[in-house]
Design a protein around this nucleic acid. Structure first.
Lengths: 345, 345
DNA sequence: AATCTTAGTGCAAACGTTTGCAACATCGAT
DNA sequence: ATCGATGTTGCAAACGTTTGCACTAAGATT
């Protein structure tokens, strides 16, 4: 006995019928006698028959697999997105093949190539920080290949983007800080070439404007890496050198927020009394740090699930991608914790 | 023009040669004239030919894809393992298909089924907490199907296990606590059916023994869920009701450690002066909490990379699985931070 | 008795590749 | 001339399915 799985042919031979009959019997096609169906199914069960998805893919030119391209799995947000994708894909009978780019465009391109070789039915993409030219995507889109961009959206015409409402999340966060009486709010911004960073900065600016406050450009500081060390250094610097000391930080991400928190604490500032802090993404550790960190939570799971549902609808022609002209935005939620709550109501 | 990719047949037709010739030309088989090779390659380039991996899989009964089964992506440790897996698989020309069980055995079994349908070449498995019967694995192993168990190891004979040295990690952690002068060390243990939990507990016990300390069974408390809330509740309880109050906690995982930290802090204990805490896994947040959390770091990336290398070696027959009789253990590293360091040297 | 339905089944092609074998032409050596 | 060797190519089968079409045998209808 070799390792090989039982095939339709094996069943056919054993039962002295043709492969076609077996195939049809297994699928309950009309026009096969109940007797035959019974025998086929029994034997299939007995031989532990398992359809060969590869053969099926070849025949149907469909692989029932979607490709997911993300920067890094270790980012909490992306791992929640993956869960959402997985969940929906799985329940609708699709497989997920995964590739991380590690923020490298080379990896992005070659992953796309291998996935295409594998006759993937569609893509879910969050492109790398290095990606500035989108030809490798537009080529595919022009052929009508299903792609959905999530979190990091593009300006490609006809592309479907799904993202969280970064603008509103930032707007809410900063408004909250203002309402808590903070006056000199620094924005620890993200890499400028990502749309999400720009949107968050826009939310910051508009919130200030909305409250009639002046925007000071030196209060907007880019943290390209986004690590806590980087931010700790930057904020320490700000807190010791700026003539008008900031009294709050709105960070583009939670790591940066934690860095700011560490800096403020080690300089002897009280949080939230003297300095308020709000982060972005609501990583797990937000509730674990001391004081607990207020943050804007992004619905990663929902985003993954929603995007996958759309992608599969497009793949299965239940949805015409042309119909989707607006980017889809999901609501964020500001979670107020102790790092920014100095007015106890 | 339809969406379809160019195939070997297309090239063959255009050049008036046979598919065989094209196939061989593309692969630089000997016995094809340089002239033909040139023409074929040129046209392939021009048509943007991309081999159909599905057809190849069918032909070769090999999919160049490995299946990864893990409990949850959102666990930091697992996400680092995935990175390791991905890295190696990618560089050796394999795809990774991923499935999370969410700790459910049903999902585990059905994921395995679909992956097998997809003619996966091998499995990397970290089984679910619910898994107590391993028949669905032994069946495959008996057929000679390549499987490697990582992190959560099994007792299945002939199975290949790769894990971190949980015993030593725990031993080191507890020894460190003792050396710091802590006397009444509680172990917040993990689910009893996981070998990793047992090993960590064993390390705890042996460290105490090694220092001639008595083991008190009421100091070993199971935290089945492993969340910070659960542990906070449990430790609060311990700290308020036990006749002899514990002065240190060695937790089976970092979340539980953070829960203990929160409990101790809110009861007014000073860390590390009055209470010492050490966690396990070295999640990102360890350095971010206050005081920073000592923890045993597990080499997730290395584990993923190493395991994948072995799996692919087995798949490619470069390695005989029979030869591997001992489980492979990777060294852990105790990272001492402020939560357990009260003797400044 | 001749024709028409109908139920049940099988044939063969197709999906895109690879590969053992055979076929052919050309050329040099006998 | 004949034989072998050599270089180049094509044929056809195979991997496991699905599916349009054709076929058979039986029963129903005239």
């Amino acid at each position: 006995m070799k390792l090989g799985q039982a095939t339709i042919k094996d069943i056919a031979k054993e039962l002295n019928v043709s492969s076609s009959t077996v195939s049809r019997a297994l699928k309950d096609y009309p026009g096969i006698s109940d007797e035959t169906k019974r025998k086929v199914k029994e034997l299939a069960e007995k031989l532990n028959y398992r359809p060969n998805a590869i053969a099926l893919s070849l025949r149907k030119s469909r692989s029932y697999t979607i490709g997911v391209i993300i920067p890094e799995v270790v980012h909490f947000f992306f791992s929640t997105v993956i869960s959402g994708i997985e969940e929906v894909a799985y329940s609708r009978g699709y497989n997920v093949i995964l590739s991380q780019t590690n923020e490298k465009i080379g990896r992005e391109k070659s992953s796309i190539e291998t996935m295409l070789s594998n006759q993937i039915d569609g893509f879910m993409v969050s492109y790398s920080k290095e990606t500035e030219n989108f030809d490798h995507f537009t080529r595919l889109l022009d052929q009508g290949f299903p792609i959905i961009f999530f979190d990091r959206s593009t300006d490609i015409p006809n592309a479907i983007n799904i993202m969280v409402d970064d603008y509103k999340g930032a707007f809410d966060a900063v408004s909250h800080l203002i309402e808590q009486g903070y006056q000199k709010i620094v924005h620890l911004a993200g890499p400028k070439n990502l749309k999400i960073s720009k949107e968050r900065e826009r939310g910051y600016r508009d919130a200030l404007k909305n409250y009639g406050m002046e925007i000071q450009e030196e209060y907007i500081v880019e943290c390209p890496v986004g690590s806590d060390e980087e931010s700790k250094e930057i904020t320490t610097n700000l807190l010791t050198t700026l003539p008008e000391k900031p009294d709050a930080f709105f960070a583009n991400n939670d790591m940066a927020a934690v860095g700011a928190m560490a800096a403020a604490k080690s300089l002897g500032f009280k949080i939230p009394e003297q300095i308020g802090i709000v982060g972005f993404s609501n990583w797990q550790f937000c509730s674990m740090v001391d004081p607990s960190l207020s943050s804007v939570s992004q619905p990663g799971f929902r985003m993954g699930a929603r995007a996958t549902d759309m992608l599969l609808d497009i793949i299965e022609k239940k949805l015409d991608p042309q119909k989707i002209t607006e980017p889809i935005t999901l609501d964020t939620q500001l979670l107020i914790r102790n790092s920014s709550l100095r007015i106890k109501s």
